[in-house]
Design a binder for these strands. Sequence first.
DNA 1: AGTAAAAAGGATAAAAAACATCTTTTAGGT
DNA 2: ACCTAAAAGATGTTTTTTATCCTTTTTACT
Lengths: 132, 132
Amino acid sequence: MMGLTRKGEYAIRGIVYLAQQDPKKLLLIGEIAAAVDVPQSFLAKIFQSFTKVGLIRSSRGAGGGFALAKPATDITLLTIVEAVEGPIVPNICVGDPGVCELSSGCQVHPVWCRVQAQVKQVLSSVTLNQLT
Amino acid sequence: MMGLTRKGEYAIRGIVYLAQQDPKKLLLIGEIAAAVDVPQSFLAKIFQSFTKVGLIRSSRGAGGGFALAKPATDITLLTIVEAVEGPIVPNICVGDPGVCELSSGCQVHPVWCRVQAQVKQVLSSVTLNQLT
DNA sequence: AGTAAAAAGGATAAAAAACATCTTTTAGGT
DNA sequence: ACCTAAAAGATGTTTTTTATCCTTTTTACT
């Protein structure tokens, strides 16, 4: 329960590998996928999510590839995970208001908020460079 | 991501309702299901999990039903959630050794362990009576 | 003893999510 | 212009979730 999907696991492997390389060099998705043992087409989708949120930059065409868009010290594990898995939500009632709130007096709701806060705190305290 | 399934949500609703009633009285699954708005047959399965781990006691036959097996103060939210969802595992590598450990030097692993510890700490600090 | 009530247990099935691949499109280099 | 590589979209497969139903077992009551 409460687990990362394979997508999240793959995402971390991929971006950690990127962070271990020369930041000026562009890497091919095929090389990264092979290095971290992830299906290439799947990793390609994952990297699209990363570029969308600006974690990595990409260049198309010959000589293209991927590289980090900013220093590894500026990228937290929380950002990485949320980029591919969506927000950290231990229960549906946390995050989008109007579901649990209406049946007010729910004593469980604040607990899920605490869980969410704790998880986010741990993940945001770790930066990509610490994972290399 | 990292979310409770509907089963977990139903489980909490059901046992919280039980905890709000006279602990000496046996309640029918049909009554509980109706009260907390959960499909009866689904809740029946969930309560089987509870009885298996000794959170609630059941009595079969006419006049049977369910009641808490121990004081609500002795039941933590962690126990409730784990009874139906299984252990809190933020990533597969946490919990069953031999998967991530072999590819030693993984810097991410300890982070997942911290996440697991934090979540368990929050959930185990809340007891059922606090949810009524 | 017989019968009705109620949980236990097993089988099954629809729906959703996860996991993955393939094809077409767009853009950069030569 | 042509080749290369990522972006985007469509599609398919497998696994998990979310149930429901039916039979069996247990218990109480008459």
